[in-house]
Amino acid sequence: MLTKRIIPCLDIRDGKTVKGVNFVNIREAGDPVELGAAYAEQGADELVFLDITATIEGRNAFAELVKEIAAELNIPFTVGGGISSEKDVSLLLEAGADKISINSAAVIEPGLIDRIAKNFGSQCVVLAIDTRFDRNLWQVYVHGGRTPTERYAPEWAKEAVERGAGEILLTSMNHDGTKNGFALDITKELSRSLPIPVIASGGAGTEEHFYDVFTKGEADAALAASIFHFGEIPIPDLKKYLHEKHITVRL
């Protein structure tokens, strides 16, 4: 049976350091390559590396880092952060990334999704949606959640699928950082209505939250950062817990 996927997310600055990580068994704290390999070893199903650098130098360093990650990892990984053109995509895929995630640039220019899907295949296009529930609607935000848009998550996700997105990475800004659990309702709504996988993100705090997002939220995959980085929930323990609760995971 196809498994539910557990995906740690790493924030990368200047192509070398990982933000906010305190991970056991890592010689050089903050080395993304070593950290990625450690997660793969622990049973992470995929990884996401997010470039949080704003400078050109940082962006070039990120592409170099992607090459190193690709040389090391034997599981799939997605890269994202500031991707705004087919040239960016081409550079990162050639460096060895399996998928790229796009966010703000796709909202500003939705045709970008069509072009990337056509040139590189839908399987590598992850559309990231940052959304906040406000006045009964899931409004889409861009620029790292700073700028509200006129779009709403269900419609935007549907349009993205029609344009060729292969996966949706859905982050609820209401839940992100709270450790109170994932946004189950919107995750379920998208997962049920869309013909492509939905990765839930934002709010993971306990093992039970993962169980909930896979059952009540009907997510295909769940992404988290800090609870993994600080060893609060070791991936093998999480998978064992999910397995015992009859969720299909790769052990």
């Binding site: 049976m1 196809l2 498994t3 996927r5 199903d45 839908s122 399987q123 292969g166 996966e167 869309l194 013909p195 492509i196 996988p197 295909d220 995959a221 790769r250």
Partner: peptide, 13 residues
């Protein structure tokens, strides 16, 4: 067939 999500993406036995 479109009876489930396509592509078949992820880990399977």
């Amino acid at each position: 067939p479109p009876e489930d999500k396509v592509p078949h993406m992820g880990w399977n036995t």
